[in-house]
């Protein structure tokens, strides 16, 4: 118990250090550049304490729960030897964690607004909701596919850079064909798909798989799943834009 407490306090201090840069930046710009006093000092102080505590709990739980479950599932699948179940799991994980992602829902709604104002879709609630849902499912599907391809890569041991560079080439080619209004949204949609809980879980899955399969190196083969998950949405959202409003 005492040992647990020591670990907890150590990570508490670590979290304080992680937050120090933000505090310094905000203080410098507020006092030196903008030359204004801080509003609601009490709220800010409470907020900072919550952030430090939250970060500490998160990292503590990460090593207790998220990492072990990701790795143990990867190993069980590897031992079971059924590729299909593994790929189904990979797809579900990618699709399921993305489709409900709040930041994606927000971005899709915003994009529907923009599209309606720009006259690409009808200016009605149903048309906008349809468009936003279509975008969301497109992104979620592409993330599911990304994890599937990423897992296949780990199993087969394909070098990552051919796939990623191929993906880049696709993004570049699509950019010249896709309608202009979708490009900004497409580029940003790659960034919003990877949430704080998905990232550790997917990382642990990749590393666990690479260490369970003979001949794979966890460092070379285990990482890279997230890279796929942030690349495919760009391509698929541009395709979606081309299908909707050519």
């Amino acid at each position: 118990m005492q040992q647990q407490l020591i670990i907890f306090f150590k990570s508490l201090i670590g979290s304080c250090k992680d937050l120090l840069p933000i505090i310094l930046v905000i203080a410098f710009f507020q006092f030196v550049v903008l030359q204004q006093p801080l509003p609601n000092l009490g709220d800010i102080f409470i907020g900072l304490i919550l952030v430090v505590l939250g970060l500490t709990f998160f990292i503590y739980g990460l090593e207790m729960g998220l990492f072990p479950i990701g790795e143990s599932m990867a190993q069980s699948f590897a031992r079971k030897g059924s590729i299909w179940w593994l790929l189904t799991f990979a797809f579900c994980l990618g699709f399921g964690t993305t489709v409900a992602e709040p930041s994606l829902i927000a971005v899709a709604k915003e994009a529907a607004n923009v599209a309606a104002k720009g006259g690409i879709i009808e200016l009605s609630k149903t048309a906008q909701a349809e468009y936003a849902n279509g975008l969301r499912f497109t992104v979620a599907f592409s993330v599911g596919l990304a994890i599937v391809v990423g897992v296949l890569r780990i199993i087969r041991g394909w070098p990552i850079h051919y796939l990623i560079i191929g993906g880049y080439a696709m993004v570049v080619i699509m950019t010249s064909f896709a309608p202009k209004w979708i490009i900004g949204i497409a580029y940003d949609s790659g960034g919003v798909t990877t949430s704080t809980i998905t990232v550790p879980l997917v990382t642990a899955l990749g590393v666990g798989l690479a260490s369970a399969i003979k001949g794979r190196n966890p460092m070379v083969d285990g990482f890279g799943l997230i890279a796929f998950a942030s690349l495919t949405p760009m391509v698929f959202v541009m395709v979606y834009g081309m299908v909707i409003g050519g």
Binding site: I26, Q30, I44, F45, G47, F57, Y60, G61, L66
Partner: peptide, 27 residues
């Protein structure tokens, strides 16, 4: 252990987000 880990992750994320909303984002 895994169950507790998930519980800590949940609590941690909620505290983290609440703190950000309260202190850092508005500022």
């Amino acid at each position: 252990q895994v169950g507790f880990g998930f519980f800590y992750v949940l609590i941690g994320l909620a505290l983290f987000l609440l703190g950000l909303e309260k202190a850092l984002f508005p500022l």
